[in-house]
Write a protein that binds this DNA or RNA. Structure first.
Lengths: 116, 116
DNA sequence: TGACAATATCCGCTTATGCGGATATACGGT
DNA sequence: ACCGTATATCCGCATAAGCGGATATTGTCA
């Protein structure tokens, strides 16, 4: 029971929830995309990604200096179901649209030669 | 988004998760039943019930000195869906059966004239 | 009115947890 | 090998949060 509670603990903090919802809708993103989308300091994003990785929500893969994250395929059916429900609920919320809009803007402004 | 995270915060602590799952399966229980089921101090149970009430998960009704709790009918569809999924997952877990067994035992041993 | 029981709240303590800036580490390019 | 960039981790700080025993409050009964 404690493992279920611990799995949910990841979702009970707004920054991590926003990160997971972005990864849920976008598939895979690199750290700079997530920083651009959430408009938070790099250390904040990195620390939460580390937390999510350690609690079994995401996995990361390094491509040169760039680090990419996605939902882990090993997500349990329970957590997948919960995240799906959260995603449906959040889909039309202004905060979700703001994060997605920031992401699009960030990508637009990125110089192509420094793309991750 | 923070309200969703705060709603989930209630579930990210084992005692509250067990309380909610018991109420989910049993409908309505009084405080002494919950104390008997979880085998935790009265103040622990009471504090968590207060938390759950304040965060919109349960409602309480007083009957004389006895206090009864149930899931609030005003639970949002999202939270209801999440709790349903958790209940299905937890249904066959040993901890869930232990709590239900303790509840049955407690009720069996209760003197009928001090029943709540 | 006083005693008793049920429950809510408080208290001191301890642990958990999030923050952003600073720094350590790793990678790639020259 | 050095420099620049990306990312992970650390640090000091501050706040959050859970615990069980003690206590305050409420309701009931005689």
């Amino acid at each position: 029971m404690k493992e279920i509670a611990d799995g949910l603990k990841a979702l009970s903090e707004e920054v991590r929830l926003r990160l997971l919802l972005l990864l849920h809708s976008q598939g895979e993103l690199c750290v700079c995309d997530l920083i651009g989308a959430l408009n938070l300091p790099q250390s904040t994003i990195s620390r939460h990604l580390s937390y999510l990785k350690n609690s079994g929500w995401v996995e990361g893969s390094r491509r040169g200096v760039w680090m990419h994250y996605r939902l882990t395929p090993q997500l349990s059916p329970l957590m997948r179901e919960i995240l799906d429900a959260l995603a449906r609920e959040a889909a039309n919320r202004p905060e979700t649209k703001r994060d997605a809009g920031n992401l699009a803007l960030y990508r637009q402004n990125k110089q192509s030669d420094e793309a991750c």
